[in-house]
Design a protein around this nucleic acid. Structure first.
Lengths: 140, 140
DNA sequence: AAATCCTTCACCCGAAAGGGTGATTTTATA
DNA sequence: TATAAAATCACCCTTTCGGGTGAAGGATTT
C-alpha cells in the first residue's frame, strides 16, 4: 500500500512538471489556472474512485449471522478468503461475469478463482461445488 | 404401446420376406438357417434392450423419505414430473449429459426439459434453479 | 531481504449450458 | 375417441464454463 501511494505521488509530480512544461512551451497563460485545476480534479477523481473501490471491496460478501463457517475445513482444503467468497456467490446462482462485477475484478480473475476452487474441492462443475460446499459446511 | 408392437411385427414380417427373397435370389441355401437364426437373434436382442429400458425407465430418481415436496408449488408453476426429476438431478451437480445417461434419454431431451424448467421457474441458470428450488421446497 | 502465498489478469481452446423453433410420439383426460 | 398435455428428439446459434498456462504485483512470514 505504501508503494502504491509513492507511485501515485510520483505520478502527480510528473503531472505537475508536464503542466509547467506546457506553460513554457505554449502561450496558454491566460487559461492555465482553470486548466491546471481541471487536470488535478480529474486526476483526484480517478484516484478517489479507485481508492473507494479498493477500500470498500473487502467484505462485500457476508454470510448469514446464524451460519458458522467450518474454518478448519477451509484450511484443510487450502481455500483462500477470496475463493470462499467466490464460492458463496456461485452458490447464490450468479454467473462468473456477475461475480466479477460484484467484486470489481475482471472476469478472468473470477475464472482463475473458480478453477482453483474446483481443483481444491475436487469437483468439476459449479453445481457440484455448491453441493459439496454445503456438505462441508463451507456455505449455508 | 400397441402401435409400437404392430410396427415391430410389421418390421419382422418385412425381414422374413427379405430373407426369403435372398434365398431365391442367391444360392445360400446351405447356411440359410444359421443366417436366419442370427438375424432374428440380433433383432430380438435389440428389441429386448429397448423394451427393458423403456419399462424400467420409470422412477429412476427418488427423493429422500424425510423430505416432503411442495406439490402445490409444483402445480402452481406447472412443473411436470419429468421436469421435477431433472431439477433434482441438476441439484445433485450432474451435467445434462449425465442426466441424459441416467434417464436413458437423449441430451437434447434434457436440454428441452431444463429450458422449460428455467422458463417456469423464471431463472436463467441451473444454479439459480437449484437455489430457487430449495427455497420453494421443490427439492431437498 | 527473500521466500511464499494470495490476488489479479490475460490468452487460448474445447466442452457445457442456454435460447429458440419445430416435429413426432406417448400419455392422460375430458 | 378426440383433444390436450407431456415427453421425446433434432437443429441452429450464442453465451457461459472449465482447463491449462503464464505472468506480475501485493502481502505475509521468516
Amino acid at each position: 500500500m505504501t508503494r502504491t501511494l509513492i507511485i501515485y505521488g510520483l505520478a502527480l509530480a510528473v503531472l505537475v512538471f508536464l503542466l509547467k512544461y506546457l506553460e513554457y512551451r505554449f502561450v496558454v497563460r491566460d487559461l492555465s489556472i482553470e486548466f491546471y485545476v481541471g487536470i488535478v480534479a480529474v486526476f483526484f477523481t480517478a484516484f478517489g474512485v479507485w481508492a473507494g473501490l479498493k477500500l470498500t471491496r473487502k467484505q462485500v460478501v457476508k454470510v448469514g449471522p446464524e451460519f458458522i463457517v467450518d474454518e478448519a475445513a477451509l484450511n484443510r482444503l487450502g481455500i483462500s478468503k477470496r475463493e470462499h467468497e467466490v464460492l458463496l456467490l456461485i452458490s447464490q446462482g450468479l454467473s462468473n461475469q456477475e461475480i466479477a462485477d460484484k467484486l470489481f475484478v475482471s472476469l478472468n480473475t473470477i475464472k482463475t478463482h473458480s478453477s482453483n476452487l474446483f481443483l481444491k474441492m475436487q469437483v468439476s462443475r459449479r453445481t457440484q461445488a455448491v453441493q459439496k460446499g454445503k456438505e462441508l459446511r463451507l456455505i449455508p
